[in-house]
């Protein structure tokens, strides 16, 4: 049986790579390889996963230098000469081994007013939103985010400016900004157009290139820039 040479990050931010040999399997995912190491070779390896089918967004890691969801990444696709190098996601504090502290990532969703606030109560009728309206289609384009932080780890602006809200939080804000039922739009726009907000994006599209769900956060951020500019010109910012 052929073996896969896998170097895995061990320890905290000042840790190092540890080599392992993992049996090669057909249709093997990167997460399968990590799981084999933890179950068979070294039970002290720390990593995070849950659904294994690309829904939960918890298993993202840096694979051969690129942020990816490991459960849906085939070894065939990313191994170079039978070698894998697996590290924690960039731009997030390392807790241990492959586990990062995601608090800052999700705190930024709160800072970007990523929570829906409607005005209707359970006694009111349902809001009617035309499925083909421009705003609903904008929501559609960004709503399938699973919060895996692949975009965040792939963003060079986040790497250079740790206060930057990042592609996922801004994409979330954009989907809510297009939700006609939400009543906190002015507040949200002020939250995302500040010093570390949408205008800090350089449109390098690292997020869009790497998003495993095929979302284009760059387009969402461009939408926020336009919305902020319109609000400014209307005297509403």
């Amino acid at each position: 049986m052929t073996k896969l040479q896998v170097r895995v990050w061990r320890g905290g931010a000042d840790g190092s790579f540890q080599p392992f040999e993992v049996p090669r399997q057909a249709s093997q995912s990167v997460l399968d390889a990590v799981t084999y190491i933890q179950r068979v070779l070294d039970p002290t390896l720390a990593y995070r996963f849950a659904c294994r089918v690309g829904m939960c967004g918890s298993c993202a890691m840096t694979v051969n230098g690129v942020a990816r969801w490991t459960c849906r990444t085939h070894v065939d696709k990313v191994a170079r000469d039978g070698r894998l190098e697996i590290a924690p996601l960039r731009s997030l504090p390392v807790v241990r081994d492959l586990v990062t502290d995601m608090r800052e990532f999700f705190d930024k969703w709160s800072r970007a007013k990523g929570v829906f606030r409607g005005a209707r109560s359970r006694r009111d009728a349902f809001a009617r939103v035309a499925p083909r309206s421009a705003q609903r289609l904008s929501v559609e384009a960004g709503i399938e985010c699973i919060g895996c932080a692949v975009c965040y780890a792939s963003c060079d602006v986040v790497a250079q400016n740790p206060a930057y809200l990042g592609p996922a939080a801004l994409n979330r804000a954009w989907t809510l900004l297009n939700d006609v039922r939400d009543v906190t739009q002015a507040e949200r726009l002020r939250a995302v157009a500040g010093d570390a907000g949408c205008h800090a994006c350089h449109s390098q599209m690292g997020c869009t290139e790497r998003c495993p769900k095929g979302i284009a956060p760059t387009a969402s951020i461009a939408g926020l820039k336009r919305a902020a500019a319109k609000a400014l010109l209307a005297g509403a910012l």
Binding site: L189, R190, A191, V192, A193, G194, D195, G197, H199, K225, A228, A229, A231, L232, L233, L237
Partner: peptide, 15 residues
């Protein structure tokens, strides 16, 4: 800088 200032700079940059 506030959202207003940042957006003003962005508009000035584009214009």
């Amino acid at each position: 800088m506030s959202a207003r200032h940042e957006t003003l700079l962005w508009v000035a940059q584009r214009a």
